[in-house]
Design a protein around this nucleic acid. Structure first.
Lengths: 230, 230
DNA sequence: ACAAAACCGAGAGCAGTGCTCTTGCTTTGG
DNA sequence: CCAAAGCAAGAGCACTGCTCTCGGTTTTGT
């Protein structure tokens, strides 16, 4: 195991966590662009150069926060899904959607970090992929369960998309009909379109009762991917 | 008119335009967060403090770029729509959607500026509203035309959303059935979800033939708002 | 058990940033 | 024609990310 290492190693993980915690606080308070290494160090009572022993650059700190944010979102979505495990497929779908929205509203800056514009020049390393996939995999699981039960009825796929759909099935959505895979990916992107627009103010003077509106839209997304009440 | 002013006024608009042009170049090259007033001034052969005569702060420069970007996008969408004016409603809808995507792919940083995470602390002033509304108004126009012709068949609205739908109709979508207004707003957000995910790299290893995928998704959005081939 | 290697915090320093203020000069308008 | 307004320039402040060096501590290999 990784525990019971020397005192030095233990101190390292603690300091690393403290840095991330303080960085997250500044993130929540001011946004990603105003996250300052020096301010983090100052708040922690250390000198800025010491911080570079833990994160080689500001971007690496951001990457760590990004992975944490993806994991936090994934965890929230999975928890909500587990709570709705006995409900029908549409309900399970909307439960995940609403968990995503709820998480985003509670942590707007962290949401912006992972689903907003990528920070300048910076491209997310492959390390983020597993964490970033969790919500998607959850949605795939629901649709797969529906397909194996009596809860899936998707529209047929146009000829020009058959290949793409089959590739999707082979790559990351086994045991799914290809038309469901394509519809699912679209709904996945559209879900975050709804959340992002609400979060980033595009619904200002456009949607007032956002909770109800979102619930309705999420249910229609479920219908789009073919989920039906069994 | 505003022409035939003194030489001073003319110089002012020219310098203002030059600043915005150079800023746009840096935006395209490096992204919004790395846009530097000093670098812009340097490139233009002036000293940084002189730039503040034209834009009182960096955020004001960004605001100007944001408005320009919204207008540029709106113009592109309107041009594409005009070109498809004689086609059926679904075709007109997808033409606008594809214009939005095309514009976004051609100017990713400008797209990120207006539909990505809002820059830190900064909240868009009301001045941006007209420019920001152009694409939405275009979509509303298409659905209205379809409603007055034989091209609209939307799903009924659940009771809890009736009021919201009627408010939308009254506020910005006159002569539309309320169920179409609600569906339209959702589709509008979902459209930018699709574009944003493609642009910000979320489709990496998920969608390969993005052009075809998007065309299909846009057509399904048209169906969602009730547009049908007449 | 002890020397070598790795690690760590502090400080100084570099190049860059947004922004302010003052100083002169030029254009404009009454 | 002269005062008022607009302008470019420079100096300067407080801040940033990041590098490098310098002692001191901990870990590790022999």
């Amino acid at each position: 195991m990784s525990t019971a290492q020397g005192a030095r190693a233990r101190a390292r993980v603690e300091v690393t966590a403290a840095i991330k915690d303080e960085a997250r606080r500044q993130l929540a308070a001011e946004g990603a662009a105003k996250l300052s290494l020096r301010a983090v160090a100052r708040e922690l009572g250390m000198v800025s150069s010491a911080l570079y022993r833990y994160f080689p650059s500001r971007d690496d700190l951001l990457t760590a926060l990004i992975i944490d944010a993806y994991d936090s979102l994934g965890e929230a979505a999975e928890a909500a899904h587990a709570k709705a495990a006995d409900a029908d497929f549409v309900r399970r779908w909307t439960a995940v959607c609403e968990a995503v929205r709820g998480w985003a509203l509670a942590r707007p800056h962290e949401y912006a970090l992972i689903y907003g514009s990528p920070v300048p020049g910076y491209t997310a390393p492959e390390t983020t992929v597993p964490a970033a996939s969790r919500v998607g995999l959850l949605l795939i699981g629901i649709v797969r369960d529906a397909h194996q039960g009596p809860g899936l009825a998707a529209l047929p796929l146009p000829a020009e998309l058959r290949l793409e759909g089959e590739r999707m099935v082979a790559d990351f959505a086994p045991d799914l009909p290809s038309e469901a895979a394509v519809a699912l990916v679209a709904a996945w992107a559209q879900l975050f379109g709804l959340v992002g627009f609400e979060l980033f103010g595009q619904f200002h003077r456009v949607v007032e009762d956002r909770e109800t509106f979102f619930r309705h839209a999420a249910a229609r997304l479920a219908r789009d991917v073919g989920l039906i009440h069994p």
